[in-house]
Design a protein around this nucleic acid. Structure first.
Lengths: 339, 339
DNA sequence: GACCGTGCCGTAAACGTTTCCGATCGGCGG
DNA sequence: CCGCCGATCGGAAACGTTTACGGCACGGTC
């Protein structure tokens, strides 16, 4: 069942069928309707590879994420939500989606770039901070439009979209302040990662704005995982000037801090309030449930797709501005009014 | 940079270049090496759409999962792991992967089938139990090879791969038995879903094998979510013949049961041991950490890909046997030896 | 020496679509 | 009546590959 067969049965030429189905103007309404009807009756679907070949565009974009993390057993609970958001946003824009595999160490440096060319991909969306990868750097350095969600690469035709990490952190601190807390400490992520640095900046900004003192020992660096939050919490709770609240730059670390409080015989939120960042699944499963700054995954996905489309059909006029997506505070039991 | 240009620069014809790069025999080693070298030097990558067009096979399979769940706010923490596993297994088999979007209610019934034909997909992998969808049923009923992970459709060229739910449940009960428990209750999932039914069957089988009495009130049905586990736990703990251990068919329900124990002033695992199923992220974050039956996501992904390949290049001889992948018990704090 | 097989390679026809370039046909103003 | 114009369509050339087919040279066998 190809366009020729459909043309034969409609009594017109393949050119007319193509024009009819592609909503071109040079075809009468009558024949267009007839062809449409016959096409859907016969279940005709145009062959995409052939279209791609002649049009020299595939309406397809590639998606890639850092699976190195999972390989090391570290799930990023956000990936799935981002994936779905990107997928629906792309399909609404009539793009197809191809999953690229993160090149391992044994791959060629050009593996990613080659994959893009092989499939005529019109752009690539990169999820989460990837390892310091040469493949990815090569891709970003090329003229292939790239949108990165929470990634830090730069290139001639790249755009970065990320949550408003600083504002989110401010939200958290503001909330704790409103609950009466004045001694608020923080556990950061690895500070060489942009999101971690931005969340710290937001924390500091809020503290100065609110007139809160931030002794240097109130800022401890973690690695986004449970254990680091627990040990950081333990250190913070042993301080002479013990904080009454902790803002952790990641939910796992926040849960770790809650464990540290329990270890010290302190109650949450009575003796220590905790606010995290990300709203992972576990946040609503632990007890007390974790207050946290939720990222807008759908918004991130839509922003990435919108930016990418801009990059695709616009000339590379200027380095695209990063797109910032607002966050939202979710208040749960771990920061309710002090008892 | 196409094959013609490469042929010109190598001083041979396009046919020879094609044969050289596709490892056909009718090319001398010398010219093959020369072409290879030139190709990688020039960064030549064959155009997949053109290949697909002429070969009439795309080396691409489609992936689809039920995003209805997420839309309703229900994350399936397993999806991401499965996704990665499928992706790596496919790329090792030199297949490309295209993400299909789950058709909404407004789509044509034939949307999925049409997508498969448009892109010349050679097969489809379906993740997690989808809604009772006509699109999917149409796909399964066609001759398109389909592999479903934890899905219950059937068709002429479909195969189902799933974890050994029954054996996993037996593992859990056996473990609790070995810890000295004799009164073991269970919280099931919705029993119309095959995994839930199988886990219950495994529980019952283990109990009879071990000679444990199972009063009817020891079996309560939940919906895989936290609240159902909590209320089920509450009911079980109020029983005159109170169980000393609970096997929950899902981790969220298991955590709910732990909350119920805390509400009743009981300690875990001292007064009540709990074992879950799935090993979601939260399992290792709650306190005490949750013992659980972990699914082998990588194994599931590889089995799905292997089955699909069998379906693709074999004649549809007989209805393919379902592939069963073993599970693994992860013992954590919630079921450690009784105090 | 004729013949055949084999190894290597080139020519050209496909694959299914889009689109450029004409062609045809009414209608309409001059 | 003539030429022009817009609307509608068909013919045919692309797009970049793979592969059937045939050709050529060479070595071996009778």
């Amino acid at each position: 069942m190809n366009i020729r067969e459909l043309a034969r049965r409609s009594g017109v030429s393949t050119a007319t069928v193509s024009r009819a189905l592609n909503d071109r103007a040079e075809v009468s309404e009558a024949t267009r309707a007839k062809i449409r009807a016959l096409a859907s009756e016969l279940g005709y679907a145009p062959n995409e590879p052939a279209r791609t070949l002649v049009r020299r565009r595939s309406d397809t974009i590639g998606l890639i994420w850092d699976s190195g993390q999972e390989a090391r057993g570290l799930h990023n609970p956000y990936l799935l939500g981002l994936l779905s958001a990107v997928r629906t946003a792309l399909s609404e824009a009539d793009y197809h989606l191809m999953l690229l595999n993160t090149p391992g160490a044994e791959e060629q440096d050009t593996a990613l770039l080659q994959a893009v060319r092989r499939h005529n991909l019109e752009g690539v969306i990169v999820l989460t901070t990837p390892p310091d990868d040469r493949c990815l750097r090569l891709l970003a350095g090329s003229t292939v439009p790239c949108a990165g969600i929470d990634t830090a690469f730069t290139g001639p035709r790249t755009v970065r979209v990320s949550s408003d990490n600083a504002a989110g952190a401010e939200l958290a601190v503001q909330h704790l302040y409103e609950q009466g807390h004045r001694r608020i400490a923080t556990v950061t992520g690895p500070l060489h990662l942009p999101p971690a640095a931005e969340r710290l900046a937001g924390y500091l900004r809020a503290c100065t704005r609110l007139g809160l003192a931030v002794p240097p020992e109130y800022v401890t660096e973690g690695d986004f995982f449970l254990a680091s939050g627990q040990s950081a919490g333990k250190r913070l709770l042993a301080l002479a000037d013990r904080p009454t609240a902790i803002f952790a730059a990641g939910d796992q670390m926040a849960i770790g801090a809650m464990h540290a409080a329990a270890d010290a015989g302190l109650s949450v939120p009575g003796d220590l309030a905790v606010v995290g960042f990300d709203d992972i699944d576990a946040a609503s499963l632990v007890r007390p449930a974790l207050s946290t700054v939720a990222q807008d995954q759908r918004g991130l996905g839509e922003a990435a797709v919108a930016s990418l489309r801009g990059l695709i059909d616009a000339a590379p006029v200027e380095p695209a501005q990063p797109r910032i997506v607002p966050t939202r505070l979710v208040v749960r039991g771990s920061s309710r009014p002090r008892g």
